[in-house]
């Protein structure tokens, strides 16, 4: 697997918004089936998996309180089985696409293979499950039916140590990138769990984080971080250099448009409000990317999914000048 040498970044045109309050209420994670979109929701407006489609139609819910209490992450496999971490019951719950419980594993503890508030979760290159064992300050790898394979990391603030890790992802080389939530950084570990590098520190400046909750890597090696308390998503390139931030550009989802059009007062208020406010991210919880280079942000506080489409030209080494040691002012 190789990454393009460099990119001509055209930008991220806004693609679309999905969902609305009371449908995709308080979304914490998102997963994709062949036709449907699964949105994991958690909060006062419903804790369940909401099923919608690309036309933004509401197809009902799966799961709910009988299956999980504090769901934190969602994974959808090739058969459209859904894996959900439950950090209240220290479990991974598996259900089929009709919501039938098919498996559940995990027990509370700090021994290897035991869990204490499993939160973020992803597949590795072999299709095994890697998850953040938050209260134990470590990462664990399991087979899909819960057999422990690997554990690494420990609680702390030093290199390779973790403080309440949350979201995580595995890139195309098998590196594990972890949102080291309470340490305000992203850490990269090799496939064997060895520490490789760290991105960021506490703060509100570019490249800094306030409680990052999730990380994703696309096919170009670009790294996306949901900077939860800063209400933004930050992009770093494959060399972990800061590129840009996303603050949200939401348009009206199809269901949202329908809603507003049938409410005279809502129409009036929206006509007179500060429109910019309606576009911004609020406590974005999860970022995901797909193989079409679409960027999905669960805009938790706004009950919707914001989607961008990456637009770049891939460049080989011969298609771009070499790196320069000195800056130049003459840049035409």
């Amino acid at each position: 697997m190789t990454l393009p040498f460099e990119l001509l970044r055209s930008g991220y045109p806004y693609y679309m918004t999905l969902g609305q309050r009371r449908v995709t209420s308080n979304p914490v994670d998102i997963g994709f089936g062949k036709e449907n979109v699964y949105v994991l929701t958690r909060g006062g407006l419903g804790t369940e998996v909401r099923v919608i489609n690309w036309e933004d139609e509401n197809l009902g819910t799966l799961g709910g309180a009988s299956l999980f209490q504090w769901p934190a992450a969602l994974l959808v496999d090739e058969d459209e089985n859904l894996y959900v971490t439950d950090e209240a019951n220290h479990k991974v719950v598996v259900m089929d696409k009709d919501g039938e419980l098919i498996d559940s594993w995990g027990e509370q503890g700090s021994e290897s293979g035991q869990l204490n508030r499993p939160s973020g979760m992803c597949f590795d290159l072999e299709g095994n499950i890697v998850l953040s064992d938050a209260m134990n300050g470590r990462i664990q790898r399991f087979t899909r039916d819960g057999k422990p394979l690997q554990v690494f990391g420990e609680s702390g603030e030093g290199e390779g140590q973790l403080n309440m890790p949350w979201g995580l992802t595995v890139d195309q080389f098998g590196d594990v990138l972890v949102a080291d939530w309470k340490n305000d950084r992203i850490q990269r570990f090799g496939p064997d769990g060895e520490f490789k590098s760290a991105i960021g520190s506490h703060g509100t400046e570019k490249g800094q984080f306030r409680r990052p909750s999730s990380v994703a890597v696309d096919g170009h090696g670009d790294i996306y971080v949901s900077d939860w308390q800063n209400d933004r998503v930050q992009l770093f390139n494959k060399d972990e250099r800061y590129i840009q931030s996303f603050h949200g550009n939401a348009s009206l989802s199809r269901s949202g448009k329908q809603y507003i059009l049938s409410n005279l007062v809502t129409l009036r208020l929206r006509a007179e409000g500060d429109f910019e406010k309606t576009q911004r991210l609020n406590a974005p919880m999860t970022v995901k990317v797909d193989d079409q280079f679409r960027l999905f942000i669960t805009d938790f506080g706004n009950h919707r999914i914001q989607i961008y489409q990456k637009d770049v030209v891939e460049l080989s080494e011969t298609e771009i000048a070499p790196k320069m040691r000195n800056p130049i002012l003459f840049t035409t």
């Binding site: 449908v23 509401n58 269901s255 329908q258 809603y259 507003i260 059009l261 049938s262 409410n263």
Partner: peptide, 9 residues
């Protein structure tokens, strides 16, 4: 509730 629906409610 309102006479017109809003699409899903």
């Amino acid at each position: 509730r309102r006479i017109n629906d809003n699409g899903s409610g």
